[in-house]
Amino acid sequence: MEYLTTILQLFDSTIRLSVPLLLACLAGLYSERSGIFDIGLEGKMLAGAFAAGAAATWTGSAYAGLLAAVLVSVALGLVHGFASITHRGNQIVSGVAINFIAAGTTVILGQAWFSQGGRTPSLPNEARFNPINLPGADAMRDVPIIGPIYYELISGHSILVYLAFLLVPFTWWVLYRTRFGLRLRAVGENPAAVDTAGVSVPWLRYRAVVCCGVLCGVAGAYLATAQGAGFVKDMTAGKGYIALAALIFAKWRPVQAMFACLLFGFLDAVAIRMQGHPIPLIGEVPVQLMQALPYILTIVLLAGFIGKAIPPKAGGVAYVKER
């Protein structure tokens, strides 16, 4: 029983930690499947988290925070689109720029508006996304095995967690079962063909960039108003890059992306839990190793030991209509 509780707690924090990764990863999926590489996931998430923290502080509403996060993140996404679609600039340079702009602006504005060293004031529970108890969770609590699983693991998360996991089948459906999804995949592989078919390449890519912005905004709002209680300086701490790694790991497919994010979330949860607890036989594993593991795993994957990850063919290349 003791073991079961520990494992359930571990899985529970795995879910909590993998949600921002999953949202950012799906965001990157829309963008990269359309042929727009996005290094700027990190920055958009960070700006979104700040906007959510600030707006929730002012209005006292978590939903206002979410809206603000989405708006700010989409605006940054449009900057990325403007640079890389309209002006055919280097997509990676543009993404890097967005990361820096977000990292600097959030601290400067946070300090100027709230004077708390770049963080937003601590949010009361009313201004956050609170855990939802699913129906029957309390009643089932005492049922052996299924009870604790339902109570601990499935119930008791905020609405954004359920939203994130529902977005996985939704994204799959959009990508593989709708006209928009077909064109999105096509424009990432062969934009000239899409253009010949009379579909506007820039318009499609702009829509993909907006989808990406929306999801990054939700991820940021989750960090600031669901997982945490307010924005903290540099609160994404590389999650955008881990999401990017997960996207490669998943070879740009939604369901696999979920598993990759769960894996990376699990590593994070284990790292937090194992701090100061030696493993039998191996001894104490340095925390830093656990923290670096997602990156090391990605490198190993890219080295081809797990299988080759082939990105969308037209990714990173601006489309030029033939004259």
């Binding site: 002006h87 890097v96 720029a97 600097g104 400067i108």
Partner: peptide, 15 residues
């Protein structure tokens, strides 16, 4: 400076 750095990368690089 981080903002200026970002803006320089955006305007001198991507745009």
């Amino acid at each position: 400076i981080v903002i200026i750095q970002g803006l320089v990368i955006l305007f001198a690089g991507a745009l």
